[in-house]
Amino acid sequence: MTTRFARIVWFVFGAAAVFFMLSPLLLLVLFSFGRNSLASFPMRGVTFDWYRALFANQDFWVAFQNSVVVSLSVGVTSVLVGMLAAFAFARMKKRRAGPLLALLTVPLMMPPLVLALALFSAYAALHIPLSVWTVVPGQVVFIQPFVILVVYARMADFDESVIDSARDLGASPMRAFLTVTLPIIRPTVIGAALIAMALSLDEFIITYYTIGGGLTLPTLVWGMLRRSLDPSINALATLILIGTLGATMLAIRATRYRG
């Protein structure tokens, strides 16, 4: 009986901890549907007004468009470059690949603020005008390592003899890549791309410093917060949350181990 009691206690404790951590997110989603203009209880009914207000806001559509452009560009760029890098690392001896990987993943360990300031000063020093197109390379620096790590993990235990087999049966190196390597690692690549896009979609600090006058969804939230506590911010944040979670869940599904 004590074990059963212990199990219940652990369950309650775990549930409380999870609830404590997730409750701000739940509240945010909840209030985005509330009739109150301030985030407070009691809620006076359910409404889609805040979403309507958000969709009527011109800035939202500009930011939405920019976010889509940035995430797609970051997703595609970091996957293409990251995949090539991961291939190269996978062919190296582990002893040599290790330190290089560590070097490439330094941006992951640096405070994003430092990275953002560095990028900002670099762009200024090079007289590159800030725009959406300065955000993309900035984010790639930060997000790229995730892709490299994910694809490298897959390539490290990749059976090279399938490539030899394909070559042996008449495939050029390119053809072997397209008909054998890529189909085998496709789930991993798709997963890595989705993770990159999810990270890009809610990236704030680097974007904020390198976008100049433009807006993405996270910088729009920031701007709106400074003016008011409009619940349409909750609506916007809910949409970002859904986008990020959706991409991540798809990524997990895509890269799931299939034995």
Binding site: D159, S161, V162, D164, S165, D168, L169, V180, P183, I184
Partner: peptide, 12 residues
């Protein structure tokens, strides 16, 4: 043509 030690069959 070669028969590889690990066979190198295409898993997909």
């Amino acid at each position: 043509n070669m028969v590889f030690q690990g066979y190198g069959l295409f898993p997909h």
